[in-house]
Structures are given as structure tokens and as C-alpha cells.
Design a protein around this nucleic acid. Structure first.
Lengths: 142, 142
DNA sequence: CATAACTGTAACTAGAATAGTTACAATTTA
DNA sequence: TAAATTGTAACTATTCTAGTTACAGTTATG
């Protein structure tokens, strides 16, 4: 399990919360839908909470709910919240600084990285939780 | 070193080849600029060759050169050639199929994945090797 | 034609990242 | 006070990447 599925799990979690409206959901309950351990869910909810997308309550009868209406949260916010790195990594070791290409390539790639990130953000911001929820609900439930 | 830097290394390699014009470059020489092992370079050249972006010659005085002019290769082709996976991974374990959300979320996420991939491809196709090379060359060489 | 210089590729290692797991302190309801 | 729940630290198993060694196959050239 080295591939990063945090964004997928985060969206799944948020769909569960969108469906439950104002009711608090427990991490155990969400975990049983995502099919993982409740701690994995609580870790993600922590990140989503720091991004002000959800609100959690500790203690008996606690749980988590959306901080806003599903139409007011978009996937770009979710993507940023779970911070799953960049599309591609820069060089692990620094290139040879004595080479004209090696000396400058990192700066160029870094700018490119930022441009692509912007593209992804733009695309993701077109989807609200509400619009994604509609797709999930409208699928032919086999 | 778990982050995937193949795209970065591939672009670095192609910049070296763009700079050398028609002359064959050895994997050893490229490796010394990228600051890695020649085998790592040859593996990447293999993928770039399969995508018809470069041509290699075995044997003494062999090496690799671009298969086309730098203005006729764009970064989208490079990205596809090194196939560095998707922006985000789908669920590792399949979600709970007894849950209305778990049952449908994967299909929705999969479509989303494809849309984002298209966005990245569109953005990357705006950059030719030539245009990237100009940026590398124009940077203030400290 | 023999040799040296290359590429191509298989096999292995080391290190890092993810998700999963256990355990437990802190908080809150009832 | 007891039970339920989150928050979080610590550890493990799995998987990925890059790096490395080794060597077979290919080709130019003296």
C-alpha cells in the first residue's frame, strides 16, 4: 500500500457526512464504509478539520459533521487539506551544478510543478461536494 | 527515495539531448549531470525510446539522441512515456459494497481521475522541449 | 578480427512512504 | 462515575523508488 489514496478516502468520508446532514457520524461507522481502520479515518478527519471542512466533537455521542453545506465545499479545498504532495517529485539528489543544464533545471521544473498544481486546483474547484454527491446517488445501484 | 522523480529526470535527460543536437550522448555522461547511476538513465531512455522520443545505438561510440526536433516534442508525451501513475490513488481495499456510498464512490473517483489526467495532459502539451530549453538557458547562471 | 566501448536488462539492496494496528490519554454525555 | 468517543503516539507490514552490481549483446575501429 504505497500509493496515496488519502484524497479518495477523504472524498468518501465527506460523501458520508454529506449524506448524514447534521447528524454526527462516528469514525467507526465511516470506517466500515471505507473498509479500513477507524484510526485512519480519524487521522483524515483531523486534516479536514484543520482545513475547516468538518467539525468534530470528542466524548460520548461525539462524532463529526460537515462545517458547511455541501454546495459550499469544493474538491480543491479537499485536495489541499490532505496535502498529497506534488504530481511529480523534483530530483532526489541535487543535479551536477557544474553542468549548465543541471544548474538550472530544478528551478524550471519547480515552476512547472506550480503551474500544474494550479491546473489541478482549477479543475477540482469545479466540483462541489454536492455535485459529487449527486453523481454517487445517481449511479445505477447494482 | 519513495517520491517519483522520473518525470523530472526524463526532462533533464531530454534537455541534455536537446543541447547536444545530433551528437549521440552516453548514459554515463547524462548520469553525471543528473547525478545518478547510468543504469537509472538507461532505464528512462528505454521508456523514452518506446515512446519514440529518442533513438539509441548500442555498441562502441553508441549513445542516444532525440528522434525529432525539440520543437516537435511536448511534455505531455514525456509524461505519458514515463507513466508515473495517477495524481491520486483509488481505495486500496474495495469499500463496503453494502453501503450506498461505498458501492458507487469508486466509479465516481475513477472518472474524476481521468478528468484530472486530461487537465494535466492539456497543460503539459503547451510546453515543447524547445520552450523548456529556452527557459533553462535563459536563467541567470549563478 | 579482436578489442574496447557502449546499451539493455535482470537481480538485488536500502530507504522512504502508506496504511493498518494497538494502546491509551483526554473529553464529554448521561 | 461509567461509558462512549476523539486525538494521537508508536509500531508493523507492504510496497515503491532509486541506486547498485553484474553481465550478455552489439558495434566501431585499430
Amino acid at each position: 500500500m504505497a500509493a496515496n489514496s488519502q484524497f479518495s478516502m477523504a472524498v468518501h468520508i465527506l460523501m458520508m457526512l454529506a449524506r448524514s446532514r447534521d447528524e454526527n457520524l462516528k469514525s467507526d461507522y465511516i470506517a466500515s464504509s471505507v473498509n479500513t481502520n477507524p484510526v485512519v479515518i480519524r487521522r483524515l478527519l483531523g486534516q479536514l478539520g484543520q482545513a475547516n471542512l468538518v467539525v468534530s466533537q470528542t466524548g460520548a455521542n461525539g462524532g463529526t459533521r460537515l462545517s458547511r453545506c455541501p454546495s459550499e465545499i469544493n474538491l480543491s479545498e479537499v485536495y489541499k487539506a490532505v496535502s498529497c504532495g506534488e504530481v511529480f517529485a523534483l530530483h532526489g539528489k541535487a543535479p551536477n551544478q557544474d553542468c549548465p543544464v543541471g544548474r538550472n533545471i530544478e528551478a524550471v521544473l519547480c515552476n512547472l510543478q506550480k503551474e500544474i498544481d494550479r491546473s489541478i486546483g482549477d479543475k477540482l474547484s469545479q466540483f462541489t461536494l454536492e455535485s459529487v454527491f449527486e453523481k454517487v446517488e445517481s449511479l445505477p445501484t447494482t
